[in-house]
Design a protein around this nucleic acid. Structure first.
Lengths: 194, 194
DNA sequence: CGCCCCATGTAAGACGTTACATGATTGA
DNA sequence: TCAATCATGTAACGTCTTACATGGGGCG
């Protein structure tokens, strides 16, 4: 009987690293370069964030670092994801979308979705989208309620800002439908051949 | 000659507090309630975040707390924004939008905009929108470049996630035009009467 | 030779999270 | 009287930021 292993909590950066390492084994430096490219700028590329984060993941046995041996260059540690790391990553990705997930921006959700196909398969991607769609509907309804209750008290800039958030969320819901359609089309094409 | 007062840096939560206190003097508890409403959930409503943040702002003389005296209830400290606090808030709001401001989500920008009218006047709101529009155009162009370079290498979910970010940003640009039009219409209505 | 890129790390400090603690007042 | 709400705080802990440190390799 294994120890129940006290539900480890991994910060957002940790999942980003796991997701990238699942795609390709990489060094800390490689990962930093990825984070400094514009689409991944939500995460810091500073060594003070990444190296300690990799060390934590290694201590939890979610990744393993191996020193690349001497092809002339300076020592360089390549990190691989472990089976446990992949399992944690999958667990994170396949959780249904909770209401709180929507309140702090969509970046985390999009990261989960972006990794979902490689890490958990297209069926998981589709399920994530469906869960997202339902959560968005509820969230949009509550935004409307709040808007009705308060929009008359706000200055123009406040009202416009609120509207921006509402419309962006509604747009995101539309995107979800498009993404679901894309996946279903793909499934029909490839069929059971996979 | 005053000491140059080493450019104070205020975390995002600090600006959110300043903005709310500029609208109404409030207690820590009041502010917590505001942060627990769905549209301000980006900020934590935990006492461990808010009370220390208020104490920091007070130490910097950006807010001043006064104990409401005994109308029966328990002591309750009402915080007001100071002249210095208002000046810092304005400075934050009226900065032009920098490219980095766009890389980590739009929440901060929207907060600046939401407060802009009350704290710095409609002209500042309009200027902020114009600065935002230009910054968005540049940002969208770089996203397109990145997309062209990499979309063929991504799995479907990665590509869809990227597209979502791109389209959301493009939609945000459209919103900016709408907001600018709204402000210009208002200006024409009220004219120079203000 | 000097400079920039590769590559990894550490140390101090700031900030937020989580959990705990306290106590008054209101209402069932 | 018991629970909920008002109201303010503190302590431990984890993580990120900022800045510094180190050193090899390639190139002009």
């Amino acid at each position: 009987m294994k120890a129940p292993a006290a539900q480890l909590k991994i910060p957002s950066l940790g999942y980003a690293l796991l997701g990238l390492l699942q795609q390709n084994p990489s060094s800390g430096y490689d990962l930093r370069k990825i984070f400094s490219s514009s689409s991944m700028r939500t995460y810091s590329d500073s060594p003070g964030a990444i190296y300690p984060a990799l060390a934590r993941l290694q201590k939890q046995a979610l990744v393993r670092g191996t020193i690349e041996d001497g092809n002339g260059l300076r020592r360089r540690q390549l990190f691989h994801i472990t089976a446990r790391g992949l399992a944690e990553l999958k667990k994170w990705i396949t959780q249904p979308i909770a209401p709180e997930d929507l309140t702090r921006g969509f970046e985390q959700i999009m990261l989960r979705f972006a990794f979902s196909e490689n890490a958990a398969g297209p069926t998981a991607s589709l399920q994530l989208l469906q869960s997202l769609r339902e959560a968005l509907k509820v969230h949009i309804a509550s935004l409307h309620t709040e808007y009705e209750a308060s929009h008359k008290l706000m200055p123009t800039s406040g009202r416009l800002a609120f509207e921006s958030g509402m419309h962006t969320t509604e747009y995101f819901l539309q995107w979800t439908d498009y993404a679901i359609a894309t996946y279903e089309k793909e499934r029909r094409k490839k069929g059971k051949s996979v």
